[in-house]
């Protein structure tokens, strides 16, 4: 099967810091890929380069055979690559429902629908439903129906996270990039949230890349793992195999534990 997304030789430096050095990854259509690695290993840089927020210093990114390396974020989004954020990026003064409607508005506009001269209410492309119904459905699918008329800025952290992901669904993404979808959530809730996301994604049919620090969550949901360390991919394999990799054990899983030890040791010292 041909890769839907193909990153070749991506390099990115911020001054003296290497955020990506020769990243190569081909992502299969409809696969679910977990990105692991300590903070600063290059996961978010990888996502930022795919979505056009950062331009790689070297290397190319192809999506469905087309070179998207130099496109602007909005053009990449229009092609069907959507992302969520570590810190939810919401329209703070709008309600959850209005957030969805704003997103749907962009989808309509990009399809040339609902413009100044058009008549009647258009159907949202991909969903074939009126805008308000699409918004309500997606909110419901993510368990957000109860928060429909609450302003985004007053929503609890976990709910904001879900709304951030729900927003990516309005455009019917072909590739979904989730940056730490379960951060700041208790370990039991992580599974609930991931179940919810995966169910919604399966219903729509999309390729998923997600950044995750909890290895149990990764083993459970990812079909394949990309382990990052120091701007490189040090392992690319199914979860069981990748998590047993010596380097991954040392730099990623062990790295997390090591960091944890350090953090706990510090106040005592």
């Amino acid at each position: 099967m041909a890769a839907i997304l193909d990153a070749r030789g991506l390099c990115k430096n911020f001054g003296a810091v290497t955020a990506a050095s020769d990243i190569n990854a081909a992502i299969e259509r409809d696969s679910v890929v977990g990105l692991i690695g300590t903070n600063g290993a290059g996961k978010t840089t990888f996502i930022n380069m795919i979505t056009g927020y950062l331009k790689p210093d070297r290397g190319r990114i192809h999506y469905e055979g087309r070179d998207i390396t130099s496109l602007a974020p909005r053009d990449i989004t229009r092609l069907g690559i959507c992302r969520s954020f570590q810190i939810p990026q919401l329209y703070a003064s709008l309600t959850a429902f209005e957030n969805m409607m704003a997103g749907i508005g962009v989808v309509l506009r990009n399809a040339g629908l609902g413009g100044f001269f058009s008549r009647g209410e258009p159907l949202v492309p991909g969903h074939n439903l009126p805008a308000e119904e699409v918004a309500a459905r997606i909110l419901e699918r993510f368990g957000l129906a109860d928060y429909r008329d609450k302003n985004a800025q007053v929503l609890p952290g976990g709910v904001r996270k879900l709304l951030d992901i729900a927003l990516t669904m309005v455009a019917k993404p072909k590739i979904l990039l989730l940056d730490e979808p379960t951060s700041g959530v208790s370990s039991e809730e992580k599974f609930v949230i991931m179940e919810m996301i995966m169910k919604a994604v399966r219903a729509e049919g999309a390729t998923v890349l997600f950044v995750e620090h909890d290895m149990e969550v990764v083993s459970r949901f990812a079909e394949r793992v990309l382990a990052f360390y120091d701007g490189r991919i040090i392992a690319d394999a199914p979860p069981a195999e990748a998590l047993e990799n010596a380097e991954v054990k040392r730099f990623v899983v062990g790295g997390e534990l090591h960091r944890l030890d350090e953090a706990q040791a510090r106040p005592r010292a």
């Binding site: 979505t51 990026q89 919401l90 329209y91 704003a102 962009v106 309005v170």
Partner: peptide, 10 residues
Amino acid sequence: DNEIRVEYMG
């Protein structure tokens, strides 16, 4: 409210 999100909605 949030231009980053507008951009990433396309």
